[in-house]
Amino acid sequence: MHPILATVLQRLGLGLLTLFLVSIIIFSAIEFLPGDFTEAVLGQSATEETVAAFRRELGLDQPAYVRYIDWIGSVAQGDLGQSFSGRASSGIDRSRSVAELIAPRLSNTLFLAGMTAIVAVPLALILGVTAALWRGGIYDRVVNAVTLSTISMPEFLVAYLLILFLATLNPIFPSLADVTSATPFWERVTKCALPCLTLTLVIVAHMMRMTRAAIINLLASPYIEMARLKGLKPSTVILRHALPNAWAPIANVVAFNLAYLVVGVVVVEVVFVYPGVGQLMVDAVTSRDIPVVQACALIFAGTYILLNLTADIVSIATNPRLLHPR
C-alpha cells in the first residue's frame, strides 16, 4: 500500500477515535448543565410527581451511562434521535426528529461558510504571496495594517459598520439574511453578501499573515538563492520555489479558519438574522433540548476533526519525502 494511503487511513482512524472521546466529553458536559428539559417546560410550580412522570417518559430517569450508550448507539446507526421540544407532560408528542431540525440549518451554515471560503481563501493567499513578494514595501505595510485592523474589531461591530455603510447609507446589499429553503440561489447569494463579507474580514488576516510568514521563512533557504542565481523572476522564485514548500503551515491555518466558519459564527448569524446552526444550538441550550445540543456539538467536533485531517493530508501530500519514498 502507498505510504500516503496508509497514513491517511491511520489519521482517519485516529479521527474517529477522537470523535468518540469527544462524544463522551459532550455528554458529560451536558450532564453538568443545571436543570433539565422537564423543569424548563413545566416551570417551578409543577409537582414532583408530574416532573418525575415526564422524566420517565423522556427516559431521563435512566442512569447516565445507559442514556449515553443509547445515544451513541443510535448515532452510530445514523439516528440523531428525537428533539424534546414539542413534547408535553400530557403525553402529546408533536416533536420532530433532530436530523429534520438540523438539516436545513446546517445546509444554511455550510452555504455561508462555503461562500466565505471561496472568497476569503484565495484572497488571503493572493495577499500573502504578494505581500511576501514586495515585503517591507508600502503595499506590504498597507495590507498588514488593514487586515490587522479588521481582525482586531469585534465581529458584531464589523457587521454593524457594514450594514451602516453598505445597506443603510448606500443600499447595495440587504441588511437581513433571512433566507428560507425556498429562496432562489442568486437571491440567497445577495442576502448572504454582508455576512460573507463580515466573516471574510474576520478570517483573512490570519491566513494571509501565515502565508506571508511561511514564504518569507523559506526565502533564506539555499535553494531559493539558487533559484535567484538561475536568473529567475522574483515572482517565479516565490511561486515555483517557495510556495510548494510552504503549503503545510498554510493548510493548517486555512483549516482552522474554515472550521471557525462552521462552528463559531453565531454572533454574525444573530446580527443578520441568518438561520444557521449556531443559533439553533444556542436556542436548544436555553430550552435544555438535549438531543439537539448533543447533535450540534457532535457535528461541530466532526467538522474540526475532518478539516484538520484534510490539513494533515495536504501537509503530507505536499511533502515529496513522503509522497515519493526512496
Binding site: M226, H241, N245, P320
Partner: peptide, 25 residues
C-alpha cells in the same frame, strides 16, 4: 539585465547540493 546573465552565461554551483536543490521538484 543581470537576471538575463545569471543562469544563462554565468552559473553557480553551491556548497551543499542537498540544500540547494528544491525538495519539491
Amino acid at each position: 539585465k543581470r537576471q538575463a546573465l545569471r543562469g544563462s552565461r554565468i552559473a553557480y554551483v553551491a556548497q551543499s547540493a542537498a540544500a540547494a536543490f528544491n525538495p519539491a521538484h
